[in-house]
Design a protein around this nucleic acid. Structure first.
Length: 648
RNA sequence: GCUCGCAUAGCUCAGGAGGUAGAGCACUUCAUUGGUAAUGAAGAGGUCUCCGGUUCAACUCCGGAUGUGAGCACCA
């Protein structure tokens, strides 16, 4: 007799060992049909798995995230089977689940075409109709190697051979197709209701750029056609928000061939840039930063001293001039150290917080560039804090206060925190690392927020915290960073005089909240779909006349608003009001002010919001107050702009 | 950097057996002075990314370069 405890807390008794499928059937025929896998004592298993003792058992269906994952993983196998049927020469490699879908990498003599994808999808549908049972098998190592070698699956052989010998090797067979896999998998190929192959691209074998390139086919699978359709709609929505597209439509910036990876900012885009820059300047001032500026072009010898030449010389732009060898700065820190080094610094001067909006150039690999998100020339809200080891924790805490305030003002409340600790190759003593990691850990704990540990991913010169924003499409965007550096000050000969009159090297904290302005603006554009909160909008309001008669009054309104510090334009073209409203709506201007005789005569404006809401006639002063309040609340959620946008 | 695509008017995109090209929007001009997402008419606008090759003839076919897109790799 064994007792099975179901998720709702109820117990069921079985006289003898029983499979997950049988448990599902004993609960109900509907559940038996829907069962894709099981969870026995929190371990995911196949429905064929036999429970032979008391256990907690949950039936996994496509209505929970585990079920979806199993479904997608099995769909990758389904695709591999179809590929093998159509292209017997193709070798299978790996096929994992990813966010919203799956992929499978194949080795084949030629790239797959979109027509191939359609054919593969068709064959998948046929295999679903065949409703083949999926069976789990355990094979001995030698047996498995021989089997796959005979099938010509050399990549699989390599994978099998790389699995530690004490681990069991499980395989899944459906019809003629067998694949090495941990599982679990759906019980039969008839379980798939909605899937689609989305794209094909190259991918390196084992993620190693020195090895051969395989063909990766991406796909997605859902419990039903409706959810698949919704998923495809979400992708379409994301494409509409593409900052490269909106950048052109809203006339914010452009790129051109002669300056790959570098931005030509147009008046409206540059307005956004400057608003953000002066906002950050103000926040940093309030947090005790001193802004400096250092040269963009510095003799290569400094980069040799700093260690950048050794590690990153390939990624640096260099200039030969006047018989000298210069490099465009890829980072601001060596320049900052030169400023710190001027004059003798005392421990009383620490912590010293220096900020620089320095323009940096990095030769990014051509394939990595992506609109504003990855560029070769950018400016960060870059700050470096020179401090003692004892001050690390309080400085990190102080920075996080700044950071969360800034993110909130931009409308981001969901922030992922990650601590990267010591890598194998590193400088500094273990004791030093212990202290720095503890300081970061304590500062993280003090926020009361959750954070993740990423062991071994720190920089060679110190541990770091990375801050990622979740945008309204649910995507993570890494923006902020806090890096402890024990190394640079010493390398560049910076020191201070301590209490006991000894000379010591300060610790440097490299930190940024927004990261690069370019990238951050890209994130903002996509998060808000171009409809930026009023405080960031390049044009906050447009005044438009109905006929020429009100032109003078419009200009008066425009001037008055400008004199109060608002960014306003008037549209006095000889066009119908409908056209003007349409065009400025498409430009996502937050406020449209319509002026006809009625308004001009009464000293008022008719107010229309970006979303189309008509607030009717109000006095000029009332509108000013309204606009002023809206600007003052930034993009904090709860404010109008962010709310409406995240709702879409 | 790697694999595979793509590159035609300011923008979005058509096009052809290899015989120097088209639409919509934008732009210019004229008419129109109108109340909350497109007033009408006319006009102008192109070395079809660049460099080679094949050909009587290349925007079209072939090769290369550059840029760009998806993915991979990279990201101090």
């Amino acid at each position: 007799m064994l007792t099975v405890t179901l998720p709702d807390g109820s117990n069921r008794e079985y006289p003898q060992p029983v499979s997950v499928a049988e448990i599902a059937a004993s609960i109900g025929p509907g559940l038996a049909k829907a069962a894709l896998a099981g969870r026995v004592n929190d371990v995911l298993v196949d429905t064929s798995h036999v429970v032979d003792g008391d256990a907690r058992v949950a039936i996994v269906t496509d209505r929970d995230s585990y079920g979806l994952e199993v479904l997608r993983h099995s769909c990758a196998h389904l695709m591999a089977q179809a590929v093998r049927r159509l292209f017997p020469e193709a070798q299978v490699t790996i096929g994992p689940v990813i966010d919203d879908g799956f992929y499978y990498d194949f080795a084949y003599s030629r790239p797959f075409t979109p027509e191939d994808l359609a054919a593969i999808e068709q064959t998948m549908t046929e295999i679903v109709k065949e409703d083949l049972g999926v069976e789990r098998k355990l094979l001995e190592r030698d047996e498995a190697v021989a089997l796959f070698r005979d099938m010509g699956e050399h990549y699989k052989v390599e994978i099998i051979e790389s699995i530690p010998s004490d681990e069991p090797l499980s395989f899944y067979q459906q019809g003629e197709f067998i694949d090495l896999c941990r599982g679990p998998h759906v019980p039969s190929t008839g379980k798939f209701k909605a899937f689609k192959l989305t794209s094909v691209a190259g991918a390196y074998w084992r993620g190693d750029s020195s090895r051969e390139m395989l063909q990766r086919i991406y796909g997605t699978a859902w419990p039903n056609a409706k959810e698949l359709r919704l998923h495809l709609q979400r992708i379409e929505e994301a494409e509409k928000r593409d900052h490269r597209k909106l950048g052109r439509q809203l006339d914010l910036f452009h790129f051109q061939e002669e300056a790959p990876g570098m931005v030509f900012w147009h008046p409206k885009g540059w307005t956004i840039y400057q608003v953000i820059r002066s906002y950050m300047k103000k926040v940093q001032d309030e947090h005790g930063y001193l802004e400096i500026n250092t040269p963009q072009l510095i003799d290569f010898s400094l980069w040799e001293k700093s260690g950048h030449a050794a590690k990153f010389s390939e990624e640096m732009f260099t200039v030969e001039s006047d018989n000298r060898h210069y490099a465009l700065k890829p980072m601001n820190c060596p320049g900052k150290v030169q400023v710190f080094k001027q004059g003798v610094k005392s421990y009383r001067d620490l912590p010293m917080r220096l900020a620089e909006f320095g323009s940096c150039h990095r030769y990014e690999p051509s394939g990595s560039m992506h609109g504003l998100m990855r560029v070769r020339n950018f400016v960060q809200d870059d700050g470096h804090i020179f401090c003692t080891q004892e001050q690390i924790q309080s400085e990190v805490a102080e920075f996080m206060e700044l950071l969360f305030r800034v993110y909130r003002d931009f409308g981001f409340d969901d922030v992922l925190l990650r601590l990267s600790t010591r890598p194998e190759k590193r400088v500094g003593s273990d004791e030093l690392w212990d202290r720095a990691e503890d300081a970061l850990r304590q500062a993280l704990d003090a926020t009361g927020r959750e954070w993740e540990l990423v062991p071994g991913e720190g920089a060679f010169y110190g541990p770091k915290i990375e801050y990622s924003l979740r945008d309204c499409m649910g995507r993570l965007q890494q923006c902020g960073t806090m890096q402890v550096d024990f190394f640079m000050a010493e390398r560049l000969g910076a020191h201070y005089v301590d209490e006991d009159n000894s000379r010591k090297h300060p610790v440097m904290l490299h930190r940024a909240a927004l990261g690069s302005f370019e990238r951050f603006i890209g994130v903002l554009i996509e998060h808000y779909a171009g409809a930026l909160p009023v405080w960031l909008a390049p044009v906050q309001a447009v005044v438009m006349n109905i006929t020429d008669k009100q032109a003078e009054y419009c200009q008066k309104v425009e001037e008055s608003l400008k004199s109060k510090g608002f960014r306003v334009a008037s549209d006095l073209r000889n066009e119908k009001i409908g056209l003007k409203i349409r065009e400025h709506t498409m430009q996502k201007t937050p406020w449209l002010l319509v002026v006809g005789d009625r308004e001009a005569d009464s000293g008022s404006v008719s107010v229309r919001k970006r979303g189309g809401e008509d607030l009717g006639k109000m006095t000029f002063d009332a509108f000013c107050d309204h606009l002023g309040e809206e600007v003052a609340q930034f993009g904090r959620s709860g404010s109008d702009g962010a709310l409406r946008q995240t709702a879409t």
